[in-house]
């Protein structure tokens, strides 16, 4: 990098490039020129280095997403695609009740899953951050993440086994004499989808909240208590507001991908628990109507993005 500048003040300069900047700028006029060339080489090297990844993402993500967007304004004409721009797909998506039901149900399920997952996960993150001794924290985090490196398909399928008519839960409760006949409200409906997805996304919520809690300066909590606040009020007025960036991140990390889940609704949702991803798949692979599938994808993503932005805006005061 800056071999011309680096002799003598090696440590300071290199660890803190910003500081070098300021110091040499003040030092002399020639320094400014040197710095602007340095910035140029820095920028050039950075851009060159990132270009393979950036180009890959451009070609395999940006271009495909743009294509989906374009497709949503085209229409299927038997085996070929009619490329005249039309709002037909969107009109159909808004008027045909089946699409509306799928979209609204998906948003509802994603919302419920998000709330359930975050509310259940917060105490765990809090427990690990505040009540587990420092040397055992890594072990707890490891324990929490392990189950999620096993096949997602099989985990979703096993929930079907657990929640089923003569499944683990029902046979267990029957055996204990707690119920007289198997519970049926827990499989092949939205409840089952919520339970399975809440399980699938658990670590994605625990980790960001945990990281936010870890960052909280513990002396602030002591200060609050010293100034006469009780435990509960300290939690709600100090801990929770400071943990909000983690909660917001966790919320988005669950809410956005959940809308597109295909496996769980197919396995445990039954006919009334199917979500928009199942409809998108049907349009693309079964009905061979890619433009309609594209329009539904765009609508789902648009709705999720809009809700996420509103959520971010509502929480802006916690995010600096």
């Amino acid at each position: 990098m800056s071999s011309a500048l680096s002799t003598g003040r090696l440590g300071l300069q290199i660890r803190l490039p910003h500081a070098t900047f300021a110091v040499s700028c003040d030092a002399d006029q020639g320094g400014a020129k040197q710095i602007s060339t340095r910035f140029d080489t820095d920028a050039k090297r950075g851009l060159t280095l990132i270009s393979p990844t950036a180009i890959y993402v451009l070609l395999l993500l940006a271009v495909p997403l743009a294509t989906i967007f374009a497709f949503s304004f085209w229409s299927q004409d038997f085996l070929s695609i009619d490329r005249t721009l039309t709002l037909k797909n969107y009109r159909e998506a808004f008027t045909d009740p089946i699409y509306r039901v799928f979209l609204l149900r998906s948003l509802w399920i994603s919302g419920v899953v998000t709330v359930v997952t975050v509310v259940l996960a917060f105490p765990i993150a809090y427990f690990v951050s505040f009540h587990v001794p420092p040397e055992r924290k890594a072990l707890w985090i490891f324990l929490i993440t392990i189950p999620f490196w096993t096949s997602y398909l099989l985990r979703a399928f096993l929930w079907k086994v657990i929640l089923g008519f003569n499944g683990v839960l029902n046979s267990g409760l029957l055996g204990l004499g707690l119920i007289d006949e198997p519970l049926t409200f827990i499989l092949y409906n939205t409840n089952a989808v919520v339970i399975t997805l809440a399980h699938a996304f658990a670590p994605f919520t625990i980790l960001p909240i945990y990281v936010a809690l870890e960052k909280i300066d513990r002396s602030l909590l002591e200060a609050s208590q010293d100034l006469g606040e009780g435990t509960a009020r300290t939690f709600f007025r100090v801990t929770l507001p400071l943990a909000m960036p983690g909660v917001v991140a966790a919320t988005l990390i669950v809410f956005i991908p959940t809308i597109g889940d295909y496996v769980t609704p197919r396995l445990v949702g039954g006919p009334d628990g199917l979500m928009i991803a199942n409809m998108i798949q049907t349009q693309f692979l079964k009905l061979n109507n890619a433009p309609m599938g594209a329009a539904l994808s765009v609508l789902a993503m648009g709705a999720v993005t809009l809700i996420s932005l509103i959520f971010l805006f509502a929480n802006r005061r916690f995010l600096k």
Binding site: L60, L61, P64, L65, T67, I68, L252, I253, I256, P257, T258, I259, G260, D261, Y262, A277, I280, Q281, F284, G293, A294, S297, A300, M301
Partner: peptide, 11 residues
């Protein structure tokens, strides 16, 4: 964060 189905269908 992008739903995988979106990545899949767009590709």
């Amino acid at each position: 964060v992008l739903p995988e189905i979106i990545v899949a269908v767009s590709l």
